[in-house]
């Protein structure tokens, strides 16, 4: 009788552990694929020879262009470059119709965050990889995950559930991550440094 009591308790415990560690984190995200597949590796390969800045440029005013618009892609992709189905679709659906691709932005910060690439690139000399990892050498665009409650993209939120590891690019781009880097570099900061 006593055993049964503890057993019931343990079953409940295990069920919750399983749910809390696996089911809930899985169910928490809405997954979607990018509208068009894209290979950063091909574009940065020697054959094409583009650098990050060629498409993700910084204007004189310090404003970061973000994801390139169709006008950046169209000159090279007026004709299909290769035979992939995505390439064909990209030409037919977007370039030909002059329709912007609705890219899902992995690193899109929420509305209340101010972030400028200019001071980080030009003054602090950070490399793209430091925040965006090896994104520039990937062959395909990852599945985009968005937190159903907070609406944050998974890249911003981070992939770890416990967030105990030291700073790594895929630990996320939440406030604590920005703050940690600032503290390591002795950057004086206040709320208004990063909020708008």
């Amino acid at each position: 009788m006593k055993n049964r009591a503890w057993l019931t308790f343990a079953v409940g415990l295990l069920a919750a552990l399983g749910g809390g560690w696996f089911a809930v984190p899985w169910a928490m995200y809405r997954r979607s694929e990018q509208p068009v597949q894209f290979s950063h590796r091909v574009h940065t390969s020697e054959a094409v020879g583009l650098s990050c800045q060629d498409c993700h440029a910084l204007s004189d005013g310090g404003k970061f262009g973000g994801i390139p618009r169709l006008e950046t892609c169209a000159p090279c992709h007026a004709e299909p470059q290769g035979k992939s189905a995505d390439e064909k679709r990209f030409i037919n659906e977007y370039v030909a119709k002059n329709r912007e691709v609705q890219w899902l932005v992995y690193a899109r910060q929420p509305e209340n965050v101010y972030f400028s690439h200019a001071p980080h690139i030009r003054l602090a000399g950070l490399k793209c990889e430091q925040c965006h990892g090896q994104h520039g050498t990937t062959d395909r665009l990852r599945t985009f995950e968005r937190n159903r409650i907070s609406t944050y993209p998974r890249d911003v939120e981070g992939y770890s559930l416990v967030r105990l590891q030291p700073s790594r690019w895929n630990e996320g781009m939440k406030m604590d991550d920005c703050s940690r880097c600032h503290h390591e570099r002795g950057v004086e900061e206040s709320c208004l440094t990063c909020h708008k």
Partner: peptide
């Protein structure tokens, strides 16, 4: 069972993350 579940849940990130996410939801 419920007691076990409650204790177990506390030992997972789920409730804490939900707390955080709900707060973030109010920001967005």
């Amino acid at each position: 069972f419920t007691a076990g579940g409650a204790v177990g849940a506390m030992m997972t990130p789920a409730p804490w993350k939900a707390l955080d996410d709900v707060a973030i939801w109010t920001q967005n």
